[in-house]
Deep mutational scan, measured.
Amino acid sequence: MQRVNMIMAESPGLITICLLGYLLSAECTVFLDHENANKILNRPKRYNSGKLEEFVQGNLERECMEEKCSFEEAREVFENTERTTEFWKQYVDGDQCESNPCLNGGSCKDDINSYECWCPFGFEGKNCELDVTCNIKNGRCEQFCKNSADNKVVCSCTEGYRLAENQKSCEPAVPFPCGRVSVSQTSKLTRAETVFPDVDYVNSTEAETILDNITQSTQSFNDFTRVVGGEDAKPGQFPWQVVLNGKVDAFCGGSIVNEKWIVTAAHCVETGVKITVVAGEHNIEETEHTEQKRNVIRIIPHHNYNAAINKYNHDIALLELDEPLVLNSYVTPICIADKEYTNIFLKFGSGYVSGWGRVFHKGRSALVLQYLRVPLVDRATCLRSTKFTIYNNMFCAGFHEGGRDSCQGDSGGPHVTEVEGTSFLTGIISWGEECAMKGKYGIYTKVSRYVNWIKEKTKLT
Rank of each mutant, 00 (worst) to 15 (best):
C335Q: 01
V248W: 08
C435I: 02
F345S: 01
A380I: 13
W118Y: 06
E231P: 10
H314Q: 02
A266P: 00
D33A: 12
V278N: 03
Y352S: 14
N138W: 12
C108V: 02
Q185I: 10
E76D: 15
G125T: 04
E171G: 05
T332Y: 07
Y444H: 04
Y201A: 13
E27Q: 12
E116Q: 12
N100C: 15
E281V: 12
R384N: 14
V77G: 15
D200T: 05
R358I: 06
A436G: 10
N59T: 06
F360C: 07
C335L: 00
K45D: 08
M394Q: 04
R46T: 15
I428E: 00
L346D: 02
D95F: 14
R83C: 15
L103Q: 08
F221K: 12
L211E: 05
L41E: 14
E320A: 02
C268I: 00
R3C: 08
C170N: 01
L103T: 08
N343I: 03
F78M: 13
K455D: 03
N295A: 06
G94Q: 09
K188G: 10
C157K: 01
D249F: 05
P177S: 05
Q216C: 11
N304H: 07
A192F: 05
E270D: 14
P414M: 14
F87Q: 15
C141F: 00
D150N: 08
N5R: 05
Y22H: 06
K45T: 04
Q408G: 10
V92L: 08
R43H: 04
D150V: 07
K260F: 07
T158I: 07
K260V: 03
I214A: 11
F388D: 13
P301K: 07
T29R: 09
V199G: 11
Y450R: 01
F78E: 15
W356Y: 05
P120E: 04
C28S: 12
F224S: 07
D232M: 08
R43L: 08
A397P: 01
G280E: 00
T225K: 10
I136C: 06
A307Y: 07
C170W: 01
Q237S: 05
E418H: 12
G236L: 07
R449E: 15
V273H: 14
M437R: 06
Y450H: 03
T85G: 11
I284Q: 07
G13N: 07
A307T: 08
S204K: 10
K51S: 11
N313W: 06
K339P: 15
N127A: 08
C178Y: 00
P333D: 00
R373H: 14
V416S: 10
A233N: 10
G439P: 07
N310D: 14
G122S: 08
K146E: 11
K362F: 09
R358S: 12
D405S: 12
F221G: 04
A233S: 08
N48Q: 07
L24M: 06
R83W: 04
D223S: 10
T422Q: 03
V77T: 11
C178F: 00
N59S: 05
Q90V: 06
L425G: 00
V242N: 00
T386P: 08
L103C: 15
T158A: 08
R46M: 13
D131W: 09
V77R: 15
S11Y: 03
F71K: 06
G13Q: 08
G246W: 07
Y115I: 09
N48K: 08
E171K: 06
K347R: 10
L369H: 09
P197S: 08
K339G: 04
I428T: 02
Y47I: 08
C119F: 01
D232V: 06
Y312T: 03
V359F: 13
D212C: 13
K152Y: 08
T186F: 08
P175S: 10
C141A: 00
T81P: 13
G355L: 06
T218K: 05
Y341F: 15
V353Y: 07
L14R: 02
L460R: 13
D200N: 07
T81A: 06
W261R: 01
R191C: 13
D33G: 13
N245E: 08
P414N: 11
D405F: 14
V296R: 00
T186M: 08
M8S: 13
T158C: 04
W261S: 01
G58R: 05
G230S: 09
K137D: 14
T332V: 14
T84L: 05
S217M: 12
A307K: 12
K455S: 06
S148F: 07
F176N: 09
V199F: 07
Y161E: 00
D200H: 03
V331I: 10
K234H: 04
A279C: 03
T417W: 01
D338N: 07
L41P: 15
M65K: 11
W88I: 12
Q2R: 14
E124K: 03
I443V: 06
T81R: 14
H302Q: 03
E76Y: 15
E433W: 05
G442T: 15
Y450C: 01
T209K: 11
V202Q: 09
L244S: 00
W118N: 08
T133K: 14
C28D: 01
G442N: 11
V368C: 12
V263K: 00
Q2E: 07
Q370C: 09
K247Y: 02
G105W: 07
H303M: 08
D405Q: 14
F144T: 00
C69V: 04
T417P: 00
E124S: 11
N310L: 03
V30H: 15
N138H: 11
D315E: 02
N151A: 06
P239G: 02
I40R: 08
L318I: 04
I112T: 15
C117R: 02
H415V: 04
T209E: 10
P101E: 08
E259Q: 03
N310R: 08
P324S: 07
P301F: 12
I297L: 10
E61L: 05
T209P: 06
Q241T: 07
K260R: 10
R364K: 05
G421M: 04
C119K: 03
E401I: 14
N245Y: 12
C119S: 03
V4L: 13
E10H: 12
T215P: 08
E53N: 08
T422V: 09
K146I: 12
V353L: 08
A397R: 02
Y91Q: 15
D249H: 07
E418M: 15
V199K: 07
N151F: 05
K51C: 08
C157P: 00
C141D: 00
L52V: 06
N222M: 10
N138D: 12
G413H: 15
S182H: 09
L372I: 10
L369T: 12
E142W: 03
K109W: 06
V77H: 14
C28W: 00
T461F: 11
N203M: 09
Y341L: 11
W118D: 14
T190P: 09
E86F: 07
W356I: 12
S169L: 03
E285Y: 04
P44M: 11
N38H: 11
N203V: 04
P120V: 10
N306E: 07
V269S: 03
F224P: 10
H400L: 12
R379D: 15
P239I: 00
E323F: 14
T133C: 06
L321N: 00
L52F: 15
M437Y: 13
R449T: 13
Q370W: 03
Q96E: 13
P239L: 00
E54K: 06
F144N: 00
M6W: 11
C145P: 00
V374L: 06
I7R: 14
L14Q: 02
E340V: 12
E124M: 10
G13R: 03
T209R: 05
I214E: 12
N258Q: 02
C170H: 01
Q370E: 10
G253L: 06
W240I: 00
V227Y: 05
F348I: 10
P172I: 04
D131G: 10
A265Y: 01
T276I: 08
E35A: 10
N222C: 13
I136M: 14
F31G: 15
S99H: 13
V174L: 07
N313A: 09
K457T: 04
N104Y: 11
V419T: 05
A265L: 02
K109R: 10
V181F: 05
E73V: 14
Q216H: 10
V242S: 00
N328K: 01
K152I: 11
I40S: 15
G280L: 01
V174A: 08
C170R: 00
V195N: 08
K39G: 11
F144L: 04
N166K: 02
V181C: 06
G402N: 12
E79P: 15
V154S: 11
E54W: 05
C128L: 02
